[in-house]
Amino acid sequence: MSEHDHDHSHDPITADGEPPAAARARALEELLVEKAVVQREDVRRNIDRLVSRSPADGARLVARAWVDTEFKERLLADARAAAQELDLDSGPSPVVVAVENTETVHHMVVCTLCSCYPRALLGPPPDWYKSLPYRSRAVSDPHGVLAEFGLELDEDVELRVLDSTADVRYIVLPRKPEGTEELSEQELAALVTRDSMIGVAQPVAPATA
């Protein structure tokens, strides 16, 4: 098969350091605005929304679930509704499912067909999530992938790989690190990384001073 198993462009870079696609995207916007197919203000608003979302949103959900068992149950039952409780909009996907990592089960998420991702709760996906090798190996060699991310699971942990092939978006509820009993909800949220909510990392307690 192809040698081109990486996810960046080979197109020549222009003088300003941009690929030809950049000029193409701008020309497309120009044409669509001229034709009144889209409004420039709508496009700007979409950009604002896109950059306003970040893993901090998902981290708030996780931290609340860590400190409030009843909230956690509601999150696992219906993540969209639980997000609304925290004034978080979980985006256009009709169903958002939160899955819980425990001492015996570890979840990780991939989209092998494209790059489905809970963007409204985590922001835009990282490049590696969209890359061809991740999309291939997350299903064929998940332990190898986790090892590359520095995560080694105990022998008796069941690894569950979620391939989000359709309309459902998945967010992982990682395990609360040991030694964080004294931390506030806000401090806990700061420990929750993007990668831990994709399931390729585990949050760690802050080093004690």
């Binding site: 098969m1 198993d5 990486h6 996810d7 941009e18 696609a21 950049a22 000029a23 995207a25 701008r26 497309l28 916007e29 496009v43 979409n46 950009i47 896109l50 950059v51 991939v110 092998t112 067909l113 835009p124 990282p126 490049d127 590696w128 890359s131 061809l132 090798p133 991740y134 999309r135 291939s136 190996r137 299903v139 064929s140 992938v145 590359e148 991310f149 391939d163």
Partner: peptide, 25 residues
């Protein structure tokens, strides 16, 4: 791509979306 044979490592470098990428989205 699932299970597509590859031995490429996963490039984990981060990149902020460029203006044209945000625009396309």
């Amino acid at each position: 791509r699932g299970v597509w044979p590859t031995d490429m490592p996963i490039d984990r470098s981060e990149h902020e979306l460029a203006d044209w990428e945000l625009l396309t989205d």
